[in-house]
Nucleic acid binder design. Structure first.
Lengths: 137, 137
DNA sequence: TGTTTTATGCAACATTGTTTCATCTTGTAA
DNA sequence: TTACAAGATGAAACAATGTTGCATAAAACA
């Protein structure tokens, strides 16, 4: 299995540290995208600054991706396995619940291909669904 | 014509004030979505707090809508006419330029209808395109 | 013109994010 | 195992962003 924190770090040539292991474990145990604040409140005594840097590193190296949800807070979710430093491949939609504010990756829903407007060059797209999630409805 | 700042305010039963007129004029003259900061730098001497409240009021009353662009900054754009306090109707995509960071409403591109995942109830969706805009390519 | 309602500006505060630097830890090689 | 170099962490200081309460000013209306 490749879904242990230790393996994920090794796969991306990142050093094993206490903070990184804890943060990865939180992501592995979570079904939803997490904001900086969410993570901070799950870990006992982690430095704010270190967490910012950890998330930044994880994103750059392809371990996690930003979950665009139209909300005011930036959230991250684990990449599904095929991402690397050079190519993020998160072509799925995200669902944002208006009630509880949680954000979920909808791996089964791919971004539909759209046509770029005249003169614009397209490099990617986000699709965000909003409404009420399973737990809230 | 209904596209003067004064008319827009009247249509939404909002008082005519200096700040509101200035902010609306900036939106009317802009082809792109504007962040709080963008607006602040276009107006000479406006109070930060007042601007926050003005934008909030405008959004609640249906004059402007949030332009979700996946960027770190919240941006707003003028609604196209059919919005009100009770129903925002901005079912178009937004384009975010990776180069200059500007965000444009793509009125001609409507959000495709998607199927909600099992157990989720859909109330709306955002579609964000990213790439290079006309001026930058 | 006077009164009521609403908007504004200021102060103070809360949250979020960044930079610099000294210290500690990890991985590696002797 | 130990020593070393690269990288990660934590603290302080700062910058940007956003909110709340309150006194004052302006707009709408009788």
């Amino acid at each position: 299995m490749t879904t242990s924190a230790l393996n994920i770090l090794a796969q991306h040539s990142l050093r094993k540290t206490a903070v990184r292991m804890q943060v990865l474990d939180i992501f592995l145990q979570s079904r939803e995208a997490l904001s900086h604040n969410d993570i901070e409140s799950h870990i006992t005594q982690v430095d704010r600054i270190t967490l910012y840097r950890t998330l930044k590193t994880f994103e750059e190296k392809g371990l996690i991706h930003k979950a665009i949800d139209g909300g005011e807070k930036l959230k991250y979710a684990l990449c599904s396995g095929h991402c690397s430093e050079h190519a993020h491949e998160d072509h799925h939609a995200h669902f944002h619940c208006d009630q509880c504010g949680k954000t979920f990756c909808i791996e089964t829903l791919h971004i539909p291909s759209v046509q770029a407007p005249e003169g614009f060059q397209l490099s990617g797209a986000y699709l965000v669904l909003k409404g009420t999630c399973v737990s809230c409805s």
